[in-house]
Design a protein around this nucleic acid. Structure first.
Length: 1075
RNA sequence: GGGCCUAUAGCUCAGUCGGUUAGAGCGCAUCCCUGAUAAGGAUGAGGUCCCUGGUUCAAGUCCAGGUAGGCCCA
């Protein structure tokens, strides 16, 4: 007896099965072997975007990791070498913030008091705290990635690689010092991060002055005649006024005071000089000036550009300044439409002044007080200076209006000191200098979805500003810049270089604060010390293509062979994070972006459609979800439900459906196959894959088999091209459809051939066909659902096949097996069967009752091969299938409808008229003409006679009466409901067969067991039916003997009774016939 | 305030090149089939294709504006 397949139970515990497969992968080192198998293959590069392991992974991490696993598996099966190196992002403010919280520290002073060395040591420990949980998740979900050599952005090799790249950028002149405006606490002496601004207490409501000031114009036609009206809520910044901004597209007016009228709100206005002229934006004229003023001239914002003016205070030196600029950020929402610019105290101000080449002059000391050298307000705290300054403005007649203004203003969340927007020295990468290169690199990057390329990401690139790189923090890659007293800057590219400068061996130095801060070296006759900043952690992760290998200092060849990546994938919120930093660093350092294809995923929502949050209590933990439904179900959901880039809801309901409709259907088909392959009582024993070669070749198999193979190979082609397009949803839909076709049509229609075994050519064809379908389907499904496929692969595979599906080759479509005609014909067959079922349902004659014949009328139905019409007849349990036309024209009525698609193509604007003419024509005449000549003539009132082609008309034909008819889309099926006595007896026989089968199951018999059957009935119809169809019944229920009458009384089998049928019967397993 | 995404049945989602009866699954109801059986199938009810306007012989589909939700940024 030959080897059998391992039996597959109809019920399966998928999570338990997955654990078994996981153990098998581990013991068999299957991942490692899949890499070995493809070691010589063409490289396909994937980069792992590093997560920070200071928190636990969530369901959304399963999302990204599904895609990050699926495509590498797909490419590996296609023979590519796909290196998958894990990585951890270790640095950054979020890590520091979490550690501050944990240690009960608040702010930089606390950290420095606690000790930077100890603080950073704690940060270092915290970022790997949950690595175990992440690795557990990766393993459980089947994410194959090499964690043994994971890169860590805090490792010395990594930091040195980052330093090297910064030096490349520095040598190109693109790493430069400038100012950055930060919210700054003068008491704590520190800038605050956005995160800190968001803390409770970050904003407080305060009352500030709101002042409007005259800036007399000193050049152009208005010189000496008019003033610019400028509004501000921070009078203390007027000392540093450098320019005035107007909007280039806004109209401004010159207004003259007509005297008398004051506005009625009781403000302290100071403009009773009749004849005074001022400039404001036209949309704000009413609000700022109103009655008592008349417009004497209008001019565009662009016309004002370059106009010089007398600044409000002459207290500090600001060379070459004090003129009007244009800037898009100016609004006419409030103020005067003319904006005072003090570049040291506002981000917009700084950007506008920098663009105009104006200097940044800052008279305010880091402690928040004006420098002592400033007249009038020297030594005063910035906010306290407002009063003095206002009084001075008023005294000199420069103040136009003064009000109070209540608004929300940022405060230090620790000490409640009002914050200063303050220019601090900072280091930038001049990404604006390579903006065109970035746009060109983006041009050749393929984005999924495509809209991100031009939209969200492209827009962001076009508005590129220089990368603000430095952070005045602690736990990060230290900025490798050393500066001497003469302001000579040295950029250090490695610890070896640093050793050279310092004249001692620093190769073992921890390249973090505070240790690197302690390294100084002689320079320009003095001492060069490190700039104390660390860098933006996004730069770290953007450096991973080379830094993960330690390149160029270490493994440079490995790096060069894996640059750029063919594929990266993260959630959409990375557009301005990792997607940008990767592209920017790559372009800055290598003049080439580091990735070619990128998938942007949407966010995962809770089942209620809201964001998952602990607060709402709707968080789904990934591990329990997989323990409940299985990782395959979750992976299928992520890959194949909806569009990956739209926000999606995950929950038990969605996963249960996937298990039932996709995974269990696939499993049950395999289980069915194995059951009958093992049960086959052939001379050779059970059916095994070796017997596949003995089946007739595909072209000699039944049409049903050829259809299944055609659909299989169509599926292979479509799934392959979908995955090549990174379209997992399309691949998933096709696979789910094929699984359904295979199970609910191919197997359903072929069951009898499986019962009868593989001895006949038809049986052999069935086994070979279903085997090929399952074997190939398993390979197609493997990248998406790696567990269930590998389990079934191991059961189904032939002995010489690889022992894991993940070591097998991706299937290729065989064009010779495709058959578009057969695909279309089978689709018609299935539509006609549905019509027949609907006719059965509406007429109330159950399918079990055989009927004499059915009529079909549908385009193409006459050309159906007999093998296919037989499928319809068998499925609908009718004796004969005829063409509707065969019953004679008089008995058929016709309905005609215009086919708009074809009509539109030929008749364009006249379509409605032609359609109306078709509707008005005599259907029978029209159909006769169309059938005879392929065209017909119709009469239209406007256009006269017109010829219409056959494909412009949808014809539905129906028998006039006496039939159960269903039609759809021009296709009709009609059932003859006449039940003759003979049909009635055949129906009763079917009923008996069903009863006996149920009884067999109730008695716990195997499907192959032979039985002995006794029966008796008082109903003449039943008796007649069993006399007429006894042999058929006996064959169907595997009865070796059938007796009319009771069984022998002694140890009699249990009695069964029919429900709707007067029948009593008994059955007993006959003595086993040797198997 | 800016940019982008999404909106189709109670729910989750398809909908190709614009074509006149807008589909599937889940859920619900009724029924059928059953040698895969704690499966499978059919039928039915259920729709303002977010709104307004436009282009077109014809719009769920193309264009413009708006509304709502979401994401990113300010």
């Amino acid at each position: 007896m030959s080897k059998r397949f391992q039996p597959l139970p109809a019920q399966v515990d998928l999570p338990a099965l997955e654990r078994e497969v996981l153990a098998r992968w581990q013991q068999g080192k299957v991942f490692e072997r899949s890499l070995e198998r493809t070691a010589a293959g063409p490289s396909w590069v994937f980069y792992e975007g590093p997560p920070t392991a200071n928190g636990m992974p969530g369901v959304h991490h399963v999302e990204a990791r599904t895609f990050k696993d699926l495509f590498p598996r797909f490419k590996t099966m296609k023979g590519h070498r796909v290196i998958r190196k894990a990585g951890w992002d270790c640095h950054g403010l979020p890590v520091e913030v979490a550690m501050e919280k944990e240690l009960g520290l608040s702010g930089k002073r606390d950290i420095e008091a606690y000790g930077v060395a100890e603080f950073n040591a704690r940060c270092r420990e915290s970022v790997l705290r949950h690595v175990d949980a992440w690795e557990e998740l990766s393993e459980r979900m089947g994410y194959w990635i090499d964690t043994s050599a994971a890169y860590r952005t805090m490792d010395t090799d990594y930091v040195e690689a980052v330093w090297w790249s910064l030096k490349v950028i520095f040598d190109k002149g693109l790493l430069v010092r400038d100012h950055r405006i930060s919210p700054y606490c003068p008491r704590c002496g520190t800038p605050l991060s956005d995160h800190e601004l968001g803390q409770p207490g970050g904003y407080e409501t305060v009352v500030d002055p709101s002042v409007t000031v005259r800036f007399p114009i000193t050049s152009g036609p208005l010189a000496g005649r008019a003033s610019l009206l400028v509004w501000t809520t921070t009078p203390w910044t007027l000392v540093s006024n450098t320019a005035v901004a107007v909007h280039p597209d806004v109209t401004y007016v010159v207004a003259r005071a007509t005297g008398g009228a004051q506005d009625g709100d009781g403000d302290q206005d100071d403009h009773d000089e009749r004849g005074e002229q001022v400039v404001v934006a036209e949309p704000l004229f009413e609000r700022v000036l109103g009655a008592g003023w008349e417009i004497v001239d209008r001019l565009g914002g662009g016309d004002l550009a370059g106009t010089t003016y007398q600044r409000p205070f002459e207290l500090v030196e600001i060379p070459d300044a004090h003129r009007v600029l244009t800037a898009d950020f100016v609004t006419v929402e409030d103020g005067t439409g003319l904006v005072h610019l003090a570049p040291a105290f506002g981000a917009d101000d700084l950007a506008a002044c920098r663009a105009a080449g104006l200097p940044v002059v800052n008279p305010v000391r880091p402690d928040g007080a004006f420098a002592d050298s400033v007249p009038l307000v020297g030594g005063a705290f910035f906010k306290d200076a407002d009063k003095t300054l206002l009084a001075d403005l008023k005294a000199r007649g420069v103040l136009f209006r003064s009000e109070s203004y209540e608004h929300s203003y940022p405060h230090c969340w620790r000490c409640h000191t009002p914050l200063l927007y303050y220019a601090l020295p900072a280091w930038y990468i001049r990404t604006t200098a390579i903006k065109d290169r970035l746009l060109a690199e983006n041009e050749r990057t393929t984005w999924y979805p495509e809209t991100v390329k031009w939209g969200r990401y492209g827009e962001w690139l076009r508005g590129n500003v220089d990368w603000s790189l430095s952070r005045s923090r602690y736990w990060g890659t230290p900025l490798p810049l050393w500066v001497c007293a003469d302001d000579h800057i040295t950029c250090v590219g490695s610890l070896a270089e640093l050793s050279e400068h310092a004249g001692r061996d620093l190769s073992g130095l921890d390249p973090h604060r505070p240790y690197v801060d302690d390294v100084a070296f002689p320079e320009c006759g003095g001492e060069a010390r490190r700039v104390p900043d660390v860098i933006d952690a996004w730069y770290d992760s953007g450096s991973m293509p080379f830094a993960q290998w330690g390149a160029p200092h270490v493994a440079n060849e490995t790096f060069e062979a894996s640059y750029p990546a063919q594929f990266i994938c993260e959630a959409i919120d990375q557009t301005r994070g990792w997607f940008y930093s990767l592209m920017a660093v790559g372009t800055l350092v290598f003049d080439r972006s580091s990735y070619e294809n990128v998938i942007c995923l949407g966010h995962i929502l809770a089942e209620d459609g809201r964001k998952m949050s602990k607060h709402l209590g709707n968080v789904l933990e990934p591990m329990p979800l997989m323990d409940k439904h299985g990782a395959d179900a979750l992976r299928w959901y992520m890959a194949a439900t909806g569009q990956p880039w739209s926000a999606r809801r995950v929950g038990d309901g969605a996963l249960e459906e996937i298990v039932r409709k996709v995974l269990l259907t696939y499993w049950n088909t395999a289980s069915f196959f194995v059951l009958y392959a093992n049960a086959a009582a052939t001379s050779a024993g059970a059916w095994t894959p070796e017997l596949a070669g003995e089946a007739p070749p595909p072209e000699r198999r039944p049409l049903l088999d050829r259809w299944a193979l055609a659909e299989l190979h169509r599926t292979v082609g479509e799934v392959d091209s979908a995955l090549e397009d990174f379209d997992t949803a399309r691949a998933g839909r096709r696979l789910a459809e094929f699984i359904d076709d295979l199970s609910n049509w191919y197997v359903r229609r072929s069951r009898r051939r499986f019962w009868e075994g593989p001895d006949s050519p038809e049986g052999a064809a069935a086994f070979a066909t279903l085997y090929e379908c399952l074997e190939t389907l398993t390979r197609l499904l493997a990248p998406i659902v790696p567990f269930i496929t590998d389990y079934l692969w191991d059961v189904l595979r032939s002995p010489d096949a690889p022992e894991s599906v993940h070591l097998a080759a991706w299937p290729t479509a065989d064009p010779a097996l495709l058959d578009a005609t057969l695909t279309e014909q089978m689709a018609l067959v299935r539509r006609l069967v549905e019509l027949g079922r609907a006719a059965r349902a509406s007429s109330g004659v159950r399918t079990r009752q055989p009927l004499g014949r059915a009529l079909i009328g549908a385009p193409g139905s006459a050309a159906l091969p007999a093998e296919l019409t037989a499928q319809i007849a068998d499925e609908l349990n009718v004796g004969r299938l005829d063409q509707l036309a065969s019953i004679g024209g008089d008995l058929v009525e016709y309905e005609v409808k215009p086919n708009f698609r074809e009509l539109g193509r030929r008749h364009g604007k006249d379509t409605p008229k032609v359609a109306a003419a078709i509707g008005a024509a005599n259907p029978a005449h029209l159909v006769t003409a169309l059938r005879a000549d392929g065209r017909a003539t119709v009469e239209t009132p406007e256009l006269g006679e017109l010829t219409v082609e056959a494909d412009c008309v949808i014809v539905t034909e129906r028998p006039r009466s006496g039939w159960a008819v269903e039609s759809a889309g021009g296709e009709t099926l009609a059932l003859d409901l006449t039940v003759t006595p003979e049909l009635r007896r055949a129906g009763i026989a079917r009923e008996v067969i069903r009863l006996v089968q149920e009884a067999r199951k109730a008695d716990g018999l195997q499907v192959t067991d032979r039985i002995e059957l006794w029966w008796r009935s008082d109903d003449a119809d039943v008796t007649d039916a069993l006399h007429a169809h006894g042999t058929e019944v006996a064959d169907e229920v595997l009865a070796v003997a059938m007796h009319e009458g009771r069984p022998p009384a002694v140890d009699g089998p249990p009695e069964h009774r029919g429900a709707d049928l007067t029948l009593t019967f008994w059955l007993r397993r006959s003595s086993p016939a040797g198997g």
